[in-house]
Amino acid sequence: MIQRIHKEKGLTLIEILVSIVILGIILTAMLGFFSQTVKYSSQNENKITSINLAEKVLSQYKASNSYTSEHNINGKIYYVDVAELTAHQTKDLIPLAVKVYTDPSLTPKSLTTELYSYMEAK
């Protein structure tokens, strides 16, 4: 009787399928991570834009006692409200509140930034 000894090199079909499944699971997990990263990045960009807009409007209001309430930045519309907090006014200083919203109804849910400062009384 002749015995044949085969030294097989390579992978079987089952080994290939198992490796594809494992790779698919890993890629699915990574895809979820990347989508969360994009979401947080977008939220941070919106927050930074709101803060910069609030500072710009505050400077504008201090200089001229007027401001533009609607701003289109990077295709997104922001709505600004500036209020003088006269209940807390002193002889020399007027407290100001600048609020930036993403909805024209200025609801608390759409509030993105609140900035408080003082302005010299004239």
Rank of each mutant, 00 (worst) to 15 (best):
L23T: 15
K122Y: 11
S50K: 01
Q3F: 13
S50W: 03
L11V: 09
Y118W: 11
T37Y: 06
E120P: 08
N44W: 11
V57M: 02
H71V: 05
V80E: 09
D92Q: 15
V18K: 04
L93D: 15
K7P: 01
K47Q: 11
A97Y: 00
A121W: 05
A87Y: 11
T86F: 03
T113K: 09
E15N: 04
V98F: 01
V57Y: 01
K76V: 15
S66Y: 13
E84W: 01
L93K: 11
L11T: 01
Y40T: 14
Q43G: 11
Q3L: 06
M30K: 06
L27Y: 04
S69A: 14
H71R: 00
Y79D: 07
Y116I: 04
Q43A: 14
S59K: 07
Y61R: 10
E84K: 08
Y78E: 05
A29M: 13
V100A: 01
L96C: 08
L27M: 13
H88T: 13
M1I: 05
V98K: 02
G75N: 05
E120I: 15
G10Q: 04
Q3G: 07
E114Q: 06
H6P: 09
S59I: 13
P104M: 08
T113F: 11
N74S: 15
K122N: 10
I77K: 15
S66D: 08
S69V: 00
V21R: 03
V57A: 02
L96S: 04
S42C: 08
D92I: 04
S59E: 12
A54L: 14
E120Y: 13
F33A: 13
A97P: 07
T49P: 07
D81G: 03
A29E: 04
L27I: 10
I94D: 01
I51C: 04
T107M: 07
I51G: 07
T112Q: 14
A54I: 12
L58E: 09
L93N: 08
I2H: 14
P95S: 02
K47A: 12
L23N: 00
E45M: 14
Q60I: 06
S35C: 03
K99H: 09
I51A: 14
S66I: 06
L27T: 09
A121D: 12
L106D: 04
L27R: 08
T12V: 02
I94C: 00
D103I: 08
I48E: 10
A63E: 09
Y40E: 09
Y40V: 00
N46T: 14
S42F: 10
S19M: 10
N65S: 05
K91H: 06
E70H: 01
L31M: 09
T37K: 05
K122W: 11
Y101N: 01
E8I: 03
N46K: 15
I22T: 08
S19C: 10
P108K: 02
Y61E: 14
D103F: 08
S59H: 06
Q36A: 05
E45T: 15
S66L: 07
N44G: 13
S35A: 07
E114G: 07
I22C: 02
I16H: 01
